[in-house]
Design a protein around this nucleic acid. Structure first.
Lengths: 242, 242
DNA sequence: AAGTGTTTGAAACATACGTTTGATGCTCAA
DNA sequence: TTGAGCATCAAACGTATGTTTCAAACACTT
């Protein structure tokens, strides 16, 4: 009588699943990207997906669970790829440069298998929304999914930016997240991304190409260490927010 | 019988206004900052403000109008200050440096008269939300309020970064907006800002001090002009999104 | 072909929302 | 003191939401 949670409890392997589940996920991710989470109703989703309203609660259990399921389809392959690549470069004896690190992250995002040409920008927009809309459950969920990869990344980042104080490193990470998430979630920009209009090529690849020099220079900016040094923090691990 | 719109139709001068109106605005801006716009109900606002539910529609006309009124209290003084300072440096014969420009913007934000010590960070969080939540009416409204100051700023920025192509300048502006808006709207960070806990001093002044070197270095990063130059755009004016 | 468990379907549920109403109280000029 | 205009209040309005229900349809083994 119940199926309760959708069965991708077994990770990575996305067994065939029912037509209905996929149609719901497709419609949901698109509508969420366009309007946001609380602004999208289950009725809009099910009607776009051409399935019965009750199907969402039957297959996913709740709207919040559906939101998480939408992210699952991307997050799992992404973290897998990212983890592999980070581990690989971490093994080498040479210290990894900041540019390399940024390339690894963006490269991992871009290598996630896409369902269609829009799916990557939709995902980036969703990620931006996730950290911006006040959806507590989502943020917690994502941080859990990311945790190990994020720590791995932080370790490499520390080696790549030895001239920064922990406080500076913390804030510059925050700024980086912001530049990425906001740009990807800016609805105007998404319009350009999806339609390709306005004369600006705004493919994800183009944005990434523009982002990397900006971020590398910003993060590598000289330390202001002379300024006011007493605001120290004990551990960067405890304060990650991605 | 009707008061329809609140009377700050006359700009800048915020005539005494009723107790009720101020209490509603105070409660609304705080709740909006905590939960977002569509996630905050009029009932939450009026009950926090200890006024009757109908008062919002009586004094403001609608929830959307209330949202805009919340922004009015900040935007008007801010744009006035910013415009004055930009005009001032634009008059000088010397070209304005990028660092100066960033100082002017952040300086203008900080000089806006504050109602209390939290009001600045609340406003920054709201600005972040405004560009992030898909509130079409708000975004349009804000762009209208900003327009002249933004053009002024863009002109000075063009002079300060002659080595960048228009496309690069456009994207780096976007990234800057993102770093600022996202950082300010990150709820975790807001928590630290408001409570001052976690060992990180996260006052707006501290964040700004961290932001400026990051942004200056990022925006001033070497042009990638050799890369792929054909994605030109005719005019930067037409594409502003702030 | 029957009978099992799983998936759909139309309808209703309870609740929350933004907004409107109309009566009541208030202030202050006449 | 009266009366007009503004402000407040409790209550209701209509609509939309997420979720539940239960019967009908389906798939598939035996």
């Amino acid at each position: 009588m119940f199926q309760t949670l959708v069965w991708n409890v077994l990770p990575t392997i996305t067994m065939a699943q029912s037509e209905t589940v996929d149609r719901i996920l497709d419609a949901a991710e698109q509508l969420f990207a366009e309007r946001g989470f609380s602004e999208t109703s289950l009725r809009q989703i099910t009607s776009k997906a051409k399935v019965n309203l009750a199907a969402v609660n039957y297959h996913f259990g709740s709207k919040n669970a559906l939101i998480q399921a939408v992210f699952d389809r991307f997050i799992n392959p992404f973290t897998r790829i990212l983890r592999e690549r980070l581990n690989e470069v971490a093994k080498g004896k040479e210290a990894v440069s900041l540019e390399e690190l940024l390339q690894i992250i963006t490269g991992s995002i871009v290598s996630v298998p896409r369902r269609n040409e829009k799916s990557l920008s939709i995902f980036m927009r969703l990620l931006g929304l996730a950290y911006t809309q006040s959806q507590g459950h989502l943020r917690k969920y994502l941080e859990e999914q990311y945790r190990t990869e994020f720590k791995l990344f932080l370790n490499l980042l520390r080696q790549a930016t030895p001239h920064l104080t922990p406080v500076e490193r913390f804030w510059r990470m925050q700024f980086m997240q912001g530049a990425v998430a906001f740009t990807m979630s800016s609805s105007e920009a998404l319009g350009s991304i999806l339609e390709g209009e306005k004369g600006v090529r705004a493919s994800v690849e183009e944005i990434v190409a523009q982002l990397i020099p900006f971020l590398a220079a910003g993060i590598n900016a000289p330390s202001q260490a002379g300024r006011d040094q007493k605001g120290g923090i004990e551990s960067v691990e405890g304060m990650h927010s991605a």
